[in-house]
Design a protein around this nucleic acid. Structure first.
Lengths: 205, 205
DNA sequence: CAACATATCTAATATGCATTAGATATTTAT
DNA sequence: ATAAATATCTAATGCATATTAGATATGTTG
């Protein structure tokens, strides 16, 4: 019989989210069972439920993780990186930051990509969350005083840029699912150069 | 008791693939049961199995469907469309054709996008199929005498263009999952113009 | 060291599901 | 109209799973 090891709720929760992220980012929410998570953590199925309440509760844990961790503009304007001046932050610089951020968290990025697709099912626990996402992201971004090239205005002109940039990231991330060894940052830069070309954007990148 | 209606195998198979495509393109393979398909078709679970043999057999049916239908370069060079001259086909014109083709089959396109993501799970029935896909697509394309701008060569220069184009399509298709009403063709054109810009590509689009 | 709180387990329950076996109805050909 | 072929069904099987109930062990605090 396995020796019963008891750990603090914090470490256990961390172990569980870690294991769940690993499994779900590969198999999707529908592709795993609580038993799979339990086995990977090294405890029993009800042991997991003690922490997450239900299978859906497991997802909630992950989402808050994703949400907290995802490189936000708030985070960016505090980095002091080029283009991160809080009074005139620059969108291309932020996107570079975002991509580097996600490239450094491949597991969470995988998870996000997998869940985003799985969640188009109307009965998926995260359906509403992901449906709202593009709009809420736009609103979120809109709160920042981005510096734009002369003649371009946020509300009028930047919806396309933002939407296309996020589409590109999604596309690259799909490719990343199959070939994790490809260089996300480098691939993104190719598109960044197309989307924000010289000389228009030279001062705003 | 339901009146037993008997139809020809052809129509039944068509009904089944149609129902399965509808359901799987929304819920994924792991998200549906044979019962769901059976209910939608209006027959019993074993009735479905009579035709598909097993749940995996259902997928095989769909894949051949996807495969046959997907707008290939072969198809394109027979259309007589601008840029489709079989001795000098043009890549941007083909991509436009491909996107229009897929835009006209939204259900199969959804299906493809959903399955592609779900199939990163190593134990997914379509795992190998989708892992091989990028390479086999490249080889497939390589068999055609594409007309390229001066100075560009297929093997040396076009891998990036092809890969990036397909990444963009994947990205747009993810967005399409959530907002089916957006215009795939129009969104693709924005990227096409960036990827194949004037004046370099003027004669080869 | 005693007692409490709780993390973890084993066992049980109920449900959903893919698949199989065998019966029945419907079509088609003679 | 009868018979063969087969499409379709009902019923049964067995497995995986989420969840619950109740027992037990472990850490912590006084």
């Amino acid at each position: 019989m396995a020796s019963r090891t008891r750990k603090t709720p914090e470490t256990r929760r961390a172990e569980i989210t870690r294991a769940a992220a690993h499994l779900i980012s590969r198999h999707g929410y529908n592709g795993i069972s609580l038993k799979d998570v339990a086995d990977l953590v090294g405890m029993s199925q009800p042991g997991i439920l003690h922490y997450v309440g239900s299978k859906e509760g497991l997802l909630s844990l992950l989402v808050t993780d994703i949400y907290d961790v995802n490189g936000t503009p708030e985070e960016f304007v505090q980095t002091g990186l080029p283009g991160s001046d809080p009074t005139h932050p620059r969108l291309p610089a932020y996107f570079d930051y975002l991509v580097e951020h996600n490239a450094g968290r491949p597991e969470l990025t995988r998870l996000y990509t997998v869940l985003q697709t799985e969640a188009i099912a109307p009965n998926h626990p995260l359906h509403d969350y992901f449906i709202r996402r593009p709009d809420s992201v736009w609103e979120h971004y809109s709160a920042f005083p981005w510096k734009l090239p002369d003649g371009l205005e946020w509300e009028r002109d930047m919806r396309d840029y933002v939407r296309m940039s996020l589409e590109v990231m999604d596309g690259i991330q799909i490719r990343l699912l199959r070939k994790p060894e490809i260089d996300y940052v480098q691939e993104w830069r190719r598109f960044g150069n197309l989307l924000f070309p010289s000389p228009t954007w030279d001062d705003c990148r």
